[in-house]
């Protein structure tokens, strides 16, 4: 029996990842523009924020059972998914418009007040988009690993780490394509203090992430219910432990911390790539952890007896 019947697939994890990455990139770009001045983040990074959210929305649509009916997800204002869908839409529009101000040949690029308004919208919608997946998961009462506000904080933190890493990477790529900037088409961010300081700030946030995750797993292991402790055990020495410890903690957190403490932009960009990879691995593992539900009496034994790997047979049978 396929697991598709009762759980989300990898595309939803990818949606959470891209939404977090893109939302945080927009929020960072907006905050930098509002409080620190023009061209603090690269034009590529500003565009990438909106595009990443759009990619996430696309993956969310593909995850649906009826993708061509996707417009219906905007219908129920009480649902947090509807709230997220509307905010993703607004964030994509605000992000693309805001980023377009960095292209100097466009006639509206000089309208500073409009740009500031768009930057404020980017901050608001970006923050919501970066946070809502965590809120969505935290409200699942019968999913012991997700339930509680902790997962929201971890998602928010990871979103900002990947967002900062995204801007580091975009700044590096733009720096390598300086001939384009020299032509005068886009606003230069070479002298940006934000981009210069981001690697160290990202390293500090990664350290916070390491501490928060250790605390989260520890609390869950000694948590309120037996099921919560069992769910956390999967991350310590269960089926998720190798990916969590080697993929997320070592490769996606500790190694980037070290690399981001160097002073070479090329090494920073490698560290940023690894931090982004860590964010993607984390989202995938957290969505996988949703398999753990508080069992009803006898349900675990019942489910363990259901056939596994008979998808091909069922396809032929139909």
């Amino acid at each position: 029996m396929s697991r598709k019947h009762d759980e989300w697939g990898w595309m939803l994890a990818a949606d959470f990842f891209f939404a977090g990455l893109g939302g945080a990139m927009l929020a960072i770009a907006g905050i930098a523009d509002l409080f620190l001045g023009d061209a603090q983040t690269s034009v590529l990074g500003n565009f990438a924020g909106a595009i990443f959210i759009a990619i996430g929305a696309g993956l969310l649509i593909l995850e649906l059972g009826r993708p061509f009916q996707a417009f219906r997800v905007f219908m129920n204002p009480k649902s947090i998914l509807t709230f997220g869908a509307w905010n993703m839409t607004f964030a994509i529009i605000a992000g693309l418009l805001f980023a377009s101000f960095g292209i100097t040949i466009l006639p509206w690029s000089g309208f500073i007040l409009v740009r500031k308004f768009l930057a404020a919208f980017c901050v608001i919608f970006g923050l919501v988009v970066a946070t809502y997946p965590g809120v969505l998961l935290a409200r699942h009462k019968a999913r012991p690993f997700w339930n509680g506000p902790g997962i929201m904080v971890l998602f928010f933190l990871s979103s900002f780490i990947t967002g900062m890493a995204g801007h580091i990477l975009s700044g590096y790529v733009i720096g390598e394509s300086s001939w384009f900037i020299a032509e005068g088409y886009i606003v230069s961010s070479f002298s940006s203090l934000v981009l210069q300081d981001l690697p160290h700030l990202t390293a500090i946030m990664l350290l916070f992430q390491l501490i928060f995750w250790a605390g989260y797993i520890w609390i869950k292991r000694s948590g309120g219910t037996e099921r919560e402790a069992e769910a956390a055990q999967r991350w310590v020495n269960g089926d998720l432990s190798a990916s969590f410890q080697l993929g997320f903690i070592l490769l996606g957190t500790i190694v980037p911390i070290v690399l981001l403490l160097f002073t070479t932009p090329a090494i920073h960009s490698v560290g940023a790539c690894l931090a982004i990879l860590g964010g993607a691995i984390m989202r995938y593992l957290v969505v996988r952890a949703g398999e753990d539900r508080t069992w009803l009496p006898g349900e675990q034994k019942y489910r363990s007896r259901l056939p596994v790997g008979d998808e091909e047979f069922l396809k032929v049978w139909k």
Binding site: H5, D6, P67, Q69, R72, L81, G290
Partner: peptide, 17 residues
């Protein structure tokens, strides 16, 4: 639309895709 939000939200595993 088959988003499975309700499947995940149901504490009783009563909804099936």
């Amino acid at each position: 639309v088959g988003c499975k939000a309700c499947v995940m939200a149901c504490p009783y595993g009563a909804r099936i895709f």
